[in-house]
Amino acid sequence: MGTLYLTDQNAYLRKTSKRLVVEKDGETLCEIPAFKVDRVVIFGHVQISTQAMNFLLQNGIETAFLTTHGQIHGRLVPAFNKNIFLRIRQYQAYGDADFRLKFARELVRSKLTNARRLLQRLSYSRDIEIEHALSEISRYAELATHADALDSLRGYEGKGTAAYFQGFGMLVQEFTFSGRNRRPPRDPVNSLLSFGYTLLSGEVFAAVSAHGLDPYLGFFHEIHYGRASLCFDLCEEFRHLVVDGFVLDLINHRRIQTGDFEEDKESGGLLLLAEPRKKFLAAFNQKMSGFRKKGGDEEISYRLSIHHQVDTLRQALEGKGEYQGYQYT
């Protein structure tokens, strides 16, 4: 199953007996067997019938509503998971300083270790001096495993991530990338990264909700009103692996080019134009749903891996073992 992205403005989503149908101006754009869809993401002015809406809710399928440029408006989600006892354990764990620190240390160790492995793979056979970045990432990953407080751990995570992006910048071709910037993203590479991270957070939000956890109560990121902190926590292990690699592929193979962006008049940031956005969404969905080796002969997609990590956290909350971070192979 996969995500249905609707980007054609003034399109209309309806349901027949066993299919979801997208129409515009009396023409059918696509028909998809309903069982193949596990999430719907709507960009801008797209209509949806009440029959389709009821079907999505009854089958536990989340619908996310975004602006045409990818900023989240809100989500239509099925009734909350009934496992209140799991959420009670989650709330109790938030007050357990030892649990929070152990979880966060493993999260940061996993993120930085995976980021280093990704850089090694992407830089293989490339004539670039990336050893310093790799060394710095390793250093901060090691420091993270021994951090005695969340504040110091966040410092190690930030410095390790900065070292990672120094190495990442060396791999960028055709475009200019001098470091991470956001809110708004001021160059094409950061625009693509921010858009990809938004899509990834939606995937994580859906997985966290499906497993019965509260997406707004995290253990590493501080909680704020309206901030899905647990989603931000679990995104950390996947953001570089899922988003950065395929963004690099898109720009270095010129599938996305410098002329594919426009300036947002309100924020001053750069945003993808409509047609390149469709290309980006297709690449993201392929990245999420494509199967890759996990170990031995086993294959698993990143989408399923995210669900696996959420379930690993659930087991840790229920006292069935400690949280084990995602391992990139």
Rank of each mutant, 00 (worst) to 15 (best):
S125W: 09
L192Q: 06
L199Y: 00
K320V: 02
V108W: 03
K15C: 07
K293N: 10
R105P: 11
T312G: 09
F205L: 15
Q324Y: 02
E174Y: 14
E236C: 10
E129R: 13
E322F: 09
A64P: 10
K102R: 13
T3E: 01
V22K: 04
L241A: 15
R303S: 13
H69K: 01
G226F: 11
G268Q: 00
R89W: 00
L273S: 05
G295N: 12
R75T: 11
A147M: 03
V204I: 14
L76D: 02
A52P: 02
G158D: 06
D233S: 12
F177H: 07
N190I: 13
Q120C: 01
G212L: 13
D244L: 03
K82G: 08
Q309Y: 09
R180A: 04
R14V: 00
E266I: 15
L270N: 00
H211V: 10
A64C: 13
E266C: 00
G169R: 08
T161F: 05
K24W: 06
A79Y: 10
V37M: 02
L193V: 14
I256S: 11
Y216R: 02
L271P: 01
E106N: 12
N10Q: 11
L76Y: 05
E263W: 04
N83K: 03
K294C: 07
N252P: 05
R292V: 09
I128F: 14
E27I: 14
S289H: 06
Q90I: 04
Q51D: 12
F291S: 04
A163G: 08
L66M: 14
R109W: 15
S123R: 01
Y124M: 13
G319Q: 08
R314C: 14
N181E: 07
K18Q: 11
F80P: 10
L153W: 03
R121M: 14
Q257V: 15
P185M: 07
V40Y: 00
A274G: 05
Q51F: 12
N285G: 15
S289F: 06
A316C: 12
Q324S: 11
P185W: 02
V204A: 10
I128W: 06
H224S: 11
S191V: 02
K111E: 07
S135E: 15
L143N: 11
R227V: 08
G212P: 09
G95I: 09
F291R: 13
Y225W: 11
K294W: 08
L304P: 01
